[in-house]
Write a protein that binds this DNA or RNA. Structure first.
Lengths: 224, 224
DNA sequence: GCGTATCGTTGAACATGTTCAAAAAGCCTC
DNA sequence: GAGGCTTTTTGAACATGTTCAACGATACGC
């Protein structure tokens, strides 16, 4: 688990800082917590926090990465639990929600940094490529052997599309102020039905022209 | 034009601050420009900038609102120029792009604040309701009397949907690093074709179930 | 064990967005 | 034009994310 040549003690300090930070974030909120608080909570000097984390948001990113790592099993279960694509995707997304439930508001901090594509923490940037591709892989697995057959031309795009869809839902969930985020759940159900329905009918011969246009959209996104 | 009981001189100072700020933002970028710079450029003390603008991002918002006001005519022209929905929507979006061309990067500052729904500058918040509804109105006008007929159930939703679509494109345009934002233009063309095609076939009887599911999605977004 | 390079830690200094109490300038009434 | 109210302006103070030079500890080659 130790990444570079750092000692076990350092690794422990790193974790202590993160854990303390998360507690403070949860108790008072991200903005209300100062980096001096974070350092004090971990019993180190202010500068130490910056030795281990590049920025305040980087703490959130570390939290994100940690939970992501811890959820492999839950992801696998979500996929193993059913052959229905709808249920699988729903499962994957619900795992994400469950993980972040305690820190729902915290992710806005990541988003704020993330909308700027120059920011290293952007979900579309180079630095997050690995997590992103890993996550997309889960959607590939969800599709594989599921109850919907995907037109050949779409197959290479669908996992990434579902990942984008999931990102959109997570954003909706974060800003959802309805009680218990019911609205997000409603949207999740309704959109999943629509998506699966679209996939189902997309193979019909009648849908040829539509398929062609949809593919054109997908290709337009590719770099040239 | 003067909004409250302020003098013409104050109004002029307000504009001088904004104009100077925009020049600095354009020349050095948003982050590289300090509020002290902005104030100095306008020949006032630092605090004065905060008398007229709530925050640094508020300057960008003022710029946004200003260009939005100035573009009514261009919007009207875009709609008058054709009966084709595709061309009209394209026209509306191109007006936006043209307005912001000089300050493309600047809008990321607004987005950063905007992803947080608690922020007053959020495009989905209460404070921006007026501009938002005004903008949505333009899409309503674009649909009215155009070459596509919209199923009755969708009619009340479509303007807002197109506005959301336009927001997505603007975001894509902002972060688009391809030369001259060609990729955005490709995506714009391809998605517009798809949208219009979808609208065209949505009236077919065969599409009944799909229409129903799409409507369910729209309703899921509504508050209960 | 000793010297040295790397790792870890410190806390003050810095940069900059923002606030605020106080003063100045306008304006209005008498 | 004196007094008082509102608007505008000021610049220092504040808060806080971040940097940095210096110092201490640790491991490693010899």
């Amino acid at each position: 688990m130790t990444e570079r040549g750092q000692t076990a003690k350092a690794e422990e300090t790193r974790n202590r800082i993160l854990d303390g930070a998360l507690r403070l974030f949860r108790e008072r909120g991200f903005e209300q917590t100062t980096m001096r608080d974070v350092a004090a909570e971990a019993g180190v000097a202010t500068g130490a926090a910056y030795y281990y984390y590049r920025s305040k948001q980087d703490l959130v990113m570390a939290f994100y990465l940690r939970t992501d790592e811890q959820s492999r099993e839950a992801f696998a279960n979500a996929i193993a639990s059913s052959k229905e694509l709808k249920k699988r995707v729903r499962g994957l997304i619900e795992v994400k929600f469950a993980q972040f439930a305690e820190h729902r508001g915290l992710l806005t901090a990541l988003l704020k940094a993330g909308v700027d594509p120059r920011d290293p923490l952007s979900p579309f940037g180079e630095e997050t490529r690995q997590v992103r591709e890993d996550n997309i892989e889960w959607y590939a697995r969800a599709i594989e052997g599921s109850d919907v057959s995907v037109p050949k031309e779409f197959a290479p795009h669908l996992p990434r599309l579902l990942w984008m869809y999931h990102m959109g839902l997570v954003y909706h969930w974060i800003i959802d102020t309805s009680p218990e985020q019911r609205r997000t759940m409603r949207v999740l159900d309704a959109t999943l039905e629509l998506i699966v329905q679209l996939l189902r009918i997309s193979s019909l011969p009648l849908m040829g022209p539509l398929r062609k246009r949809a593919l054109k959209v997908l290709r337009a996104f590719e770099d040239d």
